[in-house]
Structures are given as C-alpha cells and as structure tokens.
C-alpha cells in the first residue's frame, strides 16, 4: 500500500506525463519530500522557500483541503488519496 497523489496537468512535466504517482510518509510534508526524490523539482512547485504551501496550489487529503488540517503537517497514511490542483483565481 502507498499513498496515491493526483498530479495536475501543469506539473506532469515532472512525472513523465503521469496523472498519478505514489509515495509514502507520515505527514504531507514527508510525502512531498518522497515524491520529490522520485520526481525532482515537484516540491519547488508546491512549497515556498519558507517551507509553506504556495498559494497558487490547493492540496487535498481525501476530501479535505489541507489549509484547514495543518497544511504540510497534515497526517497521511497508506491508502489515503492526495489531490493537487492549481487554484483558479485572478483579478483585474
């Protein structure tokens, strides 16, 4: 068992075009590190230099937006499903 991560179109250049990848870790942050070791560069697109999630991306563990569950400290476990989506926003 592993944790499935759904990758949005814009980040599939890092995953050889794959829509999903698998990784492991006890927290979302550890999972992102593990995914980044397999697909270098992806962490940079998700996490700022200060170690926070970029505001341009939304990350969900199962159905929960991690902004409300501890961001990168959110606990994850085998069998969870993580979804990454670019925020759709803008303004004049």
């Amino acid at each position: 068992m592993a944790i499935e991560v759904r990758i949005p179109t814009i980040l599939r250049t890092h995953t050889g075009g794959n829509k999903t990848v698998e990784g492991s870790g006890a927290t979302l942050g550890a999972l992102v590190d593990d995914i980044d070791s397999q697909h270098p560069g992806i962490k940079n697109r998700l996490v700022t230099d200060e170690g926070k999630l970029h505001r341009f991306v939304n990350v969900y563990v199962n159905d929960e937006d991690v902004r409300f569950t501890g961001a990168l400290n959110t606990a994850v476990k085998d069998g969870d499903s993580v979804t990454i989506l670019p925020a759709v926003a803008g303004g004049c």
Binding site: N58, Y60, D63, D65, R67, T83, L85, A87, V88, A89, G90, G91, C92
Partner: peptide, 15 residues
C-alpha cells in the same frame, strides 16, 4: 471572493 476586483473558485467546488 464575491468581489469586483478578484475571483476565486471555492476550494471544495474546485475539487
């Protein structure tokens, strides 16, 4: 955002 200068899809709606 219900704003005249910004728009944003709600995160649950987006998912």
């Amino acid at each position: 955002a219900r704003s005249p200068t910004f728009y944003e899809f709600d995160s649950g709606d987006l998912l």
